[in-house]
């Protein structure tokens, strides 16, 4: 099959046509840079931290953030760092961290790695069964709370203005549907290209340049750019609710092209209303306070990360 724009062989079939390697890379990079500009995800004088894992999404967003800065004559040195969280998942994270260290070294981006074990006393593998026994929480619930906690805490320590994440179109469509199925409009109001609660002293804003890039496009871009990524799968991923939503949306996307994009576009039209409601319920109502244990942000006296830590320590 030929590229719609030239006579080369196509590598992907998109809704608006087929693209060869060269035209796909141009299309993909342009889409990411347009997202950054449209939503003002990166400012000229901001210090940036890319949240990385060593997977396709985080390496792609790190590479393109650096490319964006260079393209716009924004100094990269001292303004771009990478931050990884080692959850302590045996036979999984150690492999992606090897690729990550090599990538950051090759692209001259300083990398900080923090771990659940160092910061919270136990690896996820050891902590999850204890927390689950008391609270019935799934591994992804435990991991999600601690990852967000450590990213925010260490982003503040690094003195950055924004945390850049590799969330893609599929991640966002899944999160939107998950929140809708669970009627969780509070969490829905924190989604979008700029996630979180907006500007707040206790939070570093998180932004998503790959917001409109399908997961398949990100994998293709990483492959065509020869990023060294070995396939590895989190042993807990199939236990999560997200996995079922992911399969459902992929089925729909296959049968009805544009489903995921449609979900995200509809959501963006509603997002201002959800954000207003969320702000009234949290910041406006002074619900955000400092955790009495760790001084990080919390909507109650002790934050969820510290509550889980206590459960483990008392076990």
């Amino acid at each position: 099959m030929q590229c719609t724009k030239c006579s080369n062989n196509a590598v992907i079939n998109l809704q608006h046509g087929n693209l060869c390697k060269h035209h796909f890379i141009d299309y993909f990079e342009e889409k990411v840079f347009k997202t950054i500009n449209k939503y003002q995800l990166i400012g000229r004088n901001e210090k940036l931290c890319v949240a990385v894992s060593g997977g396709k999404d985080s390496l792609t967003v790190l590479y393109l953030t650096k490319k964006y800065l260079e393209k716009n004559n924004i100094p990269v040195d001292d303004n771009l760092v990478a931050l990884a969280v080692d959850e302590g998942i045996d036979n999984y994270r150690e492999h992606t961290l090897v690729d990550l260290k090599k990538f950051c070294s090759e692209h001259a981006v300083p990398l900080t790695i923090v771990s659940f074990e160092q910061e919270l006393g136990k690896t996820l593998d050891k902590a999850y069964p204890i927390v689950n026994k008391d609270t019935n929480k799934r591994p992804c619930n435990v991991c999600g709370v601690w990852r967000r906690y450590l990213l925010n805490k260490h982003a503040k320590k690094l003195g950055v203005d924004k945390v850049i994440t590799g969330h893609n179109l599929d991640d966002e469509a899944q999160a939107i549907v998950m929140n809708m199925f669970k009627a969780n409009t509070t969490l829905a109001g924190r989604l979008g290209p700029i996630s979180g609660l907006g500007e707040h002293d206790l939070f570093v804003q998180r932004v998503k340049p790959l917001y409109f890039c399908a997961e398949k496009e990100v994998r293709l871009y990483a492959l065509l750019k020869n990023f060294q990524i070995k396939f590895s799968e989190c042993p807990y991923s199939k236990e999560g609710y997200r996995h079922h939503i992911q399969e459902m949306l992929n089925d729909f996307e296959h049968k009805y092209k544009g489903t995921k994009q449609g979900i995200v576009n509809s959501f963006l039209a509603m997002l201002p209303l959800l954000q207003d409601q969320e702000k009234q319920q949290t910041i406006g109502a002074n619900k955000i306070q400092q955790c009495s244990k760790c001084q990080e942000a919390s909507n109650k006296d002790v934050c969820n990360a510290c509550l889980m830590k206590e459960t483990i320590q008392n076990a």
């Binding site: 997977g55 999984y92 997961e215 994998r219 989190c234 991923s237």
Partner: peptide
């Protein structure tokens, strides 16, 4: 066949 889906 290369997997598109992320590991985590």
């Amino acid at each position: 066949l290369l997997s598109v889906i992320s590991g985590g």
